[in-house]
């Protein structure tokens, strides 16, 4: 009986800790490049590869992602909004089949950061991983 209680208590504590960490840990502090990666047991999900597959022009010279994308995707009036809306569409359209939602929880804070002192919301950015 004691064993049963011990096992159950351990499982409950572990479960609660896991749930709490989901709310606070930032697994993607640099946004895009922390999630869009290449690795031994996964397809190459780096943005350079994905964009190459859909015929996007070379992004070889982009140094920071997505800040560097603004060189083209933020040049005209309203372009910045259009770029943001395109990224939102890619990550939130067809939610039942969208990997960002089904596997990554659809959390805005994977890509956006919040300065809790000022209350400013922003887009995370990091060096290109190619």
């Amino acid at each position: 009986m004691k064993d049963r209680v011990r096992i159950f208590s351990l499982a409950a504590v572990a479960g609660l800790l896991a749930m709490t960490s989901l709310s606070h840990a930032d697994d993607y502090p640099q946004g895009c490049v922390d999630c869009h990666t290449d690795g031994p047991n996964q397809p190459d999900l780096r943005l350079k590869t994905l964009l190459g597959q859909i015929g996007h022009m070379s992004v070889r010279k982009v140094k920071k992602v997505p800040a560097g994308c603004g060189g083209c995707h933020g040049a005209g009036e309203g372009e910045e909004d259009t770029f943001a809306e395109m990224i939102h569409q890619i990550h939130y359209a067809v939610p039942k089949a969208n990997v960002f939602i089904t596997r990554f929880g659809g959390d805005c804070l994977h890509c956006h950061a919040l300065d809790v002192e000022s209350g400013d919301a922003m887009v995370k950015s990091g060096p290109a991983n190619w």
Binding site: H24, A84, I87, G106
Partner: peptide, 22 residues
């Protein structure tokens, strides 16, 4: 908000997946 409600932006913001408008 973070300890009891998960701190989800989407409790207050909506996201239209088809248009991408937040």
């Amino acid at each position: 908000f973070t300890t009891q409600y998960g701190g989800s932006c989407q409790h207050c913001h909506n996201m239209e997946g088809e248009s991408g408008k937040a």
